[in-house]
Computed example of a mutant assay.
Amino acid sequence: MNFANTPSFANQGLQPGSRLLLCVLASLALLVGDSQYGLMEKARDAVSVVLYPLQRAANVPLNLAMQAGDYFTAQAALKHENDALRERDLVQSSHLMRMSALEKELQQLRRVNALAAQPSYAGVVAEVLYTGRDPFSYRLIIDKGSDSGIASGQAVIDENGLIGQVTRVQPLSAEVTQVINRNFTVPVMIERTGHRALLYGFGGGVEVRYLPISTDIRENDLLVTSGIDGVYLQGIPVARVKQIDRLGGAAFARVRSEAIAGVQSSRFVVIMPNRHPPLAAIPAPPAAASKSDKKSP
């Protein structure tokens, strides 16, 4: 094949110097025309419109990365804030419960102090420390003992009614047997009629036993101390009648009652003084003493 007559692409058209000159002249013309007459403004607008989607598409990865970073940062901040709020809520809830308990104790202490200040119920205010070792014995340990003038047999009340009786005394503490103890008995009377009866504890509650079936007693009747035993003042609320069972052919009615005092909830109690203080030892007559002296050698 003869390549001698084949035209060369390098030899076609203008020379490189001429092309450069034309490009420079065209650039200068465009610069002058654009600066003086704004010839390229519309072209730039058209190009920017065409290239805008490409610009947005090029910025998508960067925007997604920034949004993902902001999302995770916000989630971490929200989790930290949520944890802090939850912890603060728990602390405030515990403080609120403690304040509620303290307010309740304060109100009860005020009522008990007001009760102890009354002449008919004058006594010593004591705080319940804990219950007895046997939870089914229904005994309380209080923070007052013989050093505070507490003696066995004294009645113990709260702002609602009779709690029980002091059964054991130590120098700094005392044991109180509650009315719901199964070995506890209180002489009571029906406040509405004045009929006397005996109230027995049965281990967690109280009931009236050996009450004639014909006795006038009704539900919601208030049972108060009768005062005939010489231990309790008359009229201290003890229980309220809840249910009366009159079985056919039975000689006695069964009366279930509910203790009025806070036997399971009172924090402060009043120990009332004995109605009859113990008798002092009676001294020997002088004559007997003199005779005994004469007989001695």
Rank of each mutant, 00 (worst) to 15 (best):
G230K: 08
L21W: 02
P7K: 12
V166S: 01
A68I: 08
I141E: 04
Q243P: 01
L211F: 07
A197H: 07
D70H: 14
G132K: 02
R111N: 10
I180N: 01
S265T: 07
A288I: 06
E81H: 10
I180P: 02
D70F: 14
F72M: 04
R240I: 04
L247I: 14
R246V: 12
V166G: 00
I260W: 07
P119G: 01
R267L: 05
Y130R: 05
H80K: 15
D83I: 02
A84R: 07
A116H: 00
M99Y: 14
A289S: 11
L31D: 07
M272E: 03
D89K: 14
A117L: 10
A261K: 01
I141V: 13
Q36N: 05
A251R: 12
T6W: 11
L106P: 04
V49H: 13
P7G: 09
A288R: 13
R246N: 06
S266N: 09
A84L: 12
D45E: 14
H95S: 13
A58M: 11
T225K: 03
G145D: 07
S226K: 03
V169S: 02
L162A: 00
D221S: 03
D147Q: 09
D70R: 15
V238S: 00
M40Q: 12
L211D: 07
L30P: 03
E81C: 01
P135S: 06
L115G: 03
S257F: 02
L78T: 15
A76I: 07
P286V: 13
S93Q: 11
I271Q: 00
A101Y: 13
Q264V: 05
V238P: 00
P61H: 02
P277C: 09
E127D: 10
V241G: 00
Q234E: 11
A289K: 14
L20P: 01
H80D: 06
A281D: 09
Q75N: 14
Y130G: 04
G164C: 02
N220D: 10
L222E: 06
P285W: 11
Y52C: 08
R218S: 13
N181T: 03
G235Q: 08
S8Q: 11
A288Y: 11
Q243S: 08
A84V: 05
H95R: 15
L96I: 09
S173C: 06
V186H: 05
K242M: 10
A287C: 01
L14D: 11
Q108V: 09
S214V: 10
L54Q: 04
M99W: 13
K42V: 09
A253K: 06
Y130L: 09
V156H: 05
V208N: 05
A253Q: 10
V263A: 08
S100Y: 12
P119Q: 03
